[in-house]
Simulated scan of single mutants.
Amino acid sequence: MCRRPGDIECATLDLARVGPGQLLVRTLMSGVSTGTDKWVMRGTFGWADITFPAVPGYQRVGVVEEVGSDVVGFRTGQRVVATSGLGYVEVGSAWGGHSSRSISEAADVYDAEGIPAERSAFVVVAQVGYNAASRLLLDAGAHVLVVGDGVIGASAAFACRARGFDVLVAGRHRSRLDTLHEAGFATVDARATDVEATVARFEPSAVIDTVQNAEAFDMYIPSLPRRTGQVVYSGHSPDGVTAWGDMAVLQQRELTVHFVSGITSTRVEATLGLMRDGAMPSEQLLGTVAGSPDDAARLMRRVSAGRLEPVAAAVDWTWAA
Rank of each mutant, 00 (worst) to 15 (best):
A290Q: 04
A248G: 10
G273A: 11
T256N: 10
Q251H: 14
G262N: 10
T256L: 12
S237H: 03
A243N: 11
S282D: 01
R307Y: 00
E254P: 12
M275H: 04
E309N: 07
V268N: 13
G245A: 15
T264Q: 05
R298L: 05
D239L: 14
G235C: 10
R302G: 02
T271P: 09
L299D: 03
T318K: 07
A305L: 09
T264H: 09
A279F: 05
S234R: 05
A248W: 08
S265P: 14
V260R: 09
A313F: 01
R267P: 00
V303Q: 00
S304A: 14
V241H: 08
L286K: 02
L255V: 13
M247R: 05
I263E: 15
V249M: 12
P293S: 09
D277C: 03
A297F: 01
R301S: 04
R307V: 03
M275L: 08
S292E: 09
H236C: 08
V303T: 02
A312C: 10
A314V: 02
R267C: 04
L285D: 04
L299F: 02
F259E: 09
L299W: 02
D294E: 13
G287M: 06
W317R: 04
T288Q: 12
V268E: 09
P293N: 06
P238Y: 09
S237C: 12
F259P: 01
Q284C: 03
R253P: 13
W317H: 07
S304N: 12
E269V: 15
V260N: 11
H258S: 09
H236V: 15
V268K: 07
T264D: 15
E269Q: 15
T318N: 11
T264E: 13
T266R: 13
A290M: 07
R301F: 00
W317D: 02
V311K: 04
G235V: 11
D246P: 04
A297Y: 01
P238H: 10
L285A: 06
R276P: 13
D277H: 11
G306V: 05
S304V: 00
V268C: 05
L272E: 07
H258A: 04
V257C: 12
A312W: 02
G287H: 06
L299A: 06
Y233Q: 11
H236Y: 06
T271E: 05
L250V: 07
S265L: 01
D246F: 04
W317C: 03
T242P: 02
R276L: 14
Q284D: 15
G306P: 13
M275T: 05
D277T: 08
V311Y: 05
A296P: 02
A305G: 04
Q252I: 06
V241D: 13
T242F: 01
S304L: 00
H258D: 05
R276H: 09
V257D: 11
D239S: 06
R307Q: 12
A243Q: 15
R307H: 15
A312Y: 02
R253Y: 11
S304M: 05
Q251D: 02
R307F: 00
G273V: 06
W244Y: 15
S304W: 00
M280C: 08
G245V: 07
R302T: 01
R267Q: 13
T271D: 10
L272M: 12
M300A: 00
R301G: 01
E283V: 02
R301Y: 00
G287V: 03
L285S: 07
G240E: 12
T288W: 07
L308I: 07
L308F: 00
M280H: 08
E283R: 04
Q252R: 14
Q252A: 15
L299R: 01
